[in-house]
C-alpha cells in the first residue's frame, strides 16, 4: 500500500507492506536511525516520536496508521545548526550516557514543555514514566528538562520553523 506523511517537515510517500511498524518505516525506509527500539511490548519508550505533536511509541503504531499525519523524530528537533533547548539541556546536565533512550526522552520533553513550559520535577518524572533509561538514574534527565524550561531562548525561531512545516 502507499502511504504519505510529513516527517521533520518533509513530505514523504512510500510503498509499504501494511504490517510495517512505524519505527521500522522511520529507521529502515527513511534511514532516520535516531529513533531506536528496545522492547516489543510498548514498555521502554526508546522508539518515541511525536505524531501530530504528541509522543507515541512508534513500535506500536503501524506506518499505515501514520498515513496523513505529521511525525517529528530526533533528527527534526534542531533548527539547522541551532539545537533545541532540550538538546542543549541534555548536554549541559549530563542527561544522557549511552544515548539510546535519549531521542525518545528528548521528544517527550519537547512535547511536555510545549504543553507546560514550567513543569515541576514530579510532572517531568510522570511525563517520562513510560520510558526506561538504564544509565542515568533519571535525576540528570529531570535537570536537563528543567534546564530547557529555564532557557527557552531560541524557542521563537523554533516556532517559526514549525509553522513553516505545518
Amino acid at each position: 500500500m502507499q502511504i504519505s506523511m510529513t516527517i521533520n517537515g518533509t513530505d514523504v510517500t512510500r510503498e509499504i507492506e501494511p504490517r510495517v511498524l512505524l519505527v521500522h518505516f522511520i529507521r529502515d525506509d527513511l534511514r532516520l536511525t535516531g529513533t531506536h527500539w528496545g522492547c516489543d511490548t510498548t514498555n521502554c519508550g526508546t522508539c518515541v516520536v511525536l505524531m501530530d505533536g504528541q509522543p507515541v511509541k512508534s513500535c506500536t503504531v503501524l506506518a499505515a496508521m501514520a498515513d496523513g499525519h505529521t511525525i517529528t523524530t530526533v533528527e527534526g528537533l534542531a533548527n539547522g545548526a541551532t539545537l533545541d533547548p532540550v538538546q542543549q539541556g541534555f548536554m549541559e546536565e549530563h542527561g544522557l550516557q549511552c544515548g539510546f533512550c535519549t531521542p525518545g526522552m528528548m521528544l517527550t520533553a519537547r512535547a511536555l514543555l510545549d504543553h507546560n513550559p514550567h513543569p515541576e520535577p514530579l510532572e517531568i518524572r510522570e511525563a517520562i514514566s513510560g520510558q526506561i533509561c538504564r544509565c542515568t538514574g533519571y535525576a540528570t534527565i529531570v535537570r536537563s528538562i528543567q534546564w530547557a524550561a529555564e532557557h527557552p531562548a531560541g524557542a521563537a525561531a523554533q516556532t517559526t520553523e514549525k509553522e513553516v512545516h505545518a
Partner: peptide, 9 residues
C-alpha cells in the same frame, strides 16, 4: 493506566 505516552493513543 499504563503510562502517559500509551494514554495518548
Amino acid at each position: 493506566i499504563a503510562d502517559p505516552i500509551v494514554r495518548n493513543r
